[in-house]
């Protein structure tokens, strides 16, 4: 291919070439591109996220689904997402559209969901109608780390579908903070899969803020 001369297409191409090939996952700082067979939970997640996008509500998918989407072999019953706190009318717009396809398992209506659950820092859950699992665990961002996830969310492009996910560096550190065996395994998996492209200093800074022990960091496989 000939040299690019600065037009928009060439800039995009140059950017594409800057992406690093890790297995068959293309990863730059802000974007993971992955083409693979569909899992049912991918389709469920993408169907649900469409309603948030249509309501112009920012979100970040976190935790197990992210590891699973990258190939981790474990089951999950829910997809965890942080959502920006929006005015009730905007939430109601989302609710009215989403509940045509999904049902909220624990809240009776939009008012109950917003005022009774979300504003009290309690998650609401959505599943396909008549099914409890899988479900989306939906909560408003509350802590500084939640807001960091939203503001610094990266793009996971799965089979040409955009899924906003929390930065992997934060997810690894937070998994270590949560501390169950499953969490350590998720953290070790995501680190091993993407280690060449992760910002180690960023992981370490989160680890310090979360007061993660050196032995825990070592267990994940991160050099101290």
């Amino acid at each position: 291919m000939g040299p690019c001369t600065g037009n928009e297409v060439c800039t995009s191409l140059n950017r594409l070439f800057l992406l690093i090939l890790i297995m068959e996952i293309m990863y730059s700082n802000r974007k993971i591109i992955l083409n693979r067979e569909w899992f049912e939970i991918d389709k469920f997640t993408i169907r649900f996220l469409k309603y948030l996008t249509e309501a112009k509500i920012r979100f970040a998918v976190i935790s197990g689904y992210v590891a699973i989407s990258l190939g981790r072999s474990r089951h999950t019953e829910d997809v965890d997402i942080f959502v920006e706190k929006v005015p009730f009318q905007q939430f109601k717009y989302f609710w009215d559209a989403a509940t045509l396809e999904f049902e909220c398992i624990n809240a009776a209506n939009a008012d109950d969901a917003y005022h009774g659950y979300l504003l009290n820092n309690t998650a609401i859950r959505f599943s396909d109608k008549g099914r409890y699992i899988p479900n989306v665990e939906f909560k408003f961002a509350k802590t500084d780390l939640d807001f960091y996830s939203l503001e610094n969310a990266i793009d996971l492009i799965l089979n040409d579908n955009l899924i906003k996910i929390s930065p992997v560096e934060l997810q690894i550190a937070f998994k270590a903070f949560l501390g169950s065996e499953k969490d350590f395994e998720d953290a070790a998996y995501m680190y091993e899969i993407l280690k060449e492209k992760l910002d180690l200093e960023l992981i370490r800074s989160f680890m310090i803020k979360l007061k993660i022990s050196k032995s825990a960091i070592k267990r994940i496989g991160i050099p101290i």
């Binding site: 190939g71 070790a188 998996y189 091993e192």
Partner: peptide, 8 residues
């Protein structure tokens, strides 16, 4: 954990 790393 060792298995997870090998699997990755």
């Amino acid at each position: 954990l060792e298995f997870v790393r090998m699997y990755a």
